[in-house]
Design a protein around this nucleic acid. Sequence first.
DNA 1: GTCGGGCCTGTTACACTGTAACAGGCACCG
DNA 2: CGGTGCCTGTTACAGTGTAACAGGCCCGAC
Lengths: 166, 166
Amino acid sequence: MDEHLSRPEAHEHDHDCGGEALLARAERICRERGLQYTELRRRTLEAIAGEGRALGAYDIAERLSGPGRRVAAVSVYRALDFLTENGLVHRIASRNAFVPCGHGHGGGESTVFLICRTCGAVDETVSRDIQRGLDRTLASAGFKPLSHIVEVEGECGACQGKGGAA
Amino acid sequence: MDEHLSRPEAHEHDHDCGGEALLARAERICRERGLQYTELRRRTLEAIAGEGRALGAYDIAERLSGPGRRVAAVSVYRALDFLTENGLVHRIASRNAFVPCGHGHGGGESTVFLICRTCGAVDETVSRDIQRGLDRTLASAGFKPLSHIVEVEGECGACQGKGGAA
DNA sequence: GTCGGGCCTGTTACACTGTAACAGGCACCG
DNA sequence: CGGTGCCTGTTACAGTGTAACAGGCCCGAC
């Protein structure tokens, strides 16, 4: 099932498609695992979930800061570490930025990030085909995988329609 | 002291992991394309090729510097841009580091980087299976790819044999 | 109740990564 | 000789990430 995190066509409305679900999942996971769902962590997650594109740590820090409150980037990094370890956000290595995790990764499927060069939206999808290809390649190389990243940069469907593919 | 990680006999596959062939290819490519194979570019490439693991730009700058000569990182970045554009080195996004490009990428195959968490070696391989899976996934998502990265972190065959898999 | 420990956050400092802008050198061409 | 283009040196700075220490809070042990 394709679960698209963000669709630029829903521009006027704070498209947290999956946003509410993500926050609820965060709360549940922390409760289940006996972890603390602190305000900083919640607000960090909200900042990421409320954005259709990948956010850098310093961008998040800026969003969380206000007139009376300053959040340092280092605090954001710690919150991001926590959220990443618990499968609530992903790091986009090619951008040094973070996106919400749109689903609870089952097994046997590779997560793939589709990063639009035009509008900056990051779509997360999964592919059993890629996982299978990866498994075969790794097996033939005698390599034992612990983690992997697959990131594709290009043009999303919405931006192709808007004139990019004239 | 720096650990010298090149293991001449550790690999059984055929492509040359950063030796004479790459330097010869660099010279040929520059000649063919009318580009300048300057000393800085050559030495940058040699530094990368002479290492079994990924090197950061500042590591390279340090290696190229000496008692009478200081190479700034910014110069290394420019050389790396040149080498990357001409398919002589690759950037490892998950490490912010660079490795020699082990072959002349044909079409239809995805390049995959296998990064050993134990010894730091980076192996470059290609996979038609992964490319096919990627194509299918992108087609079904309506996404037009321009570039992509696939990086796997884990344990290489040599390190598994050495007790890592105990 | 108080003490102590663990966890979280604030703060400072610093290292690493990467780019912009300008100046100088060098080759090549008119 | 002067101009042009490319490469490199240099400085400055922005962005990314981590180490180390201090303070606050909760919670269990005493």
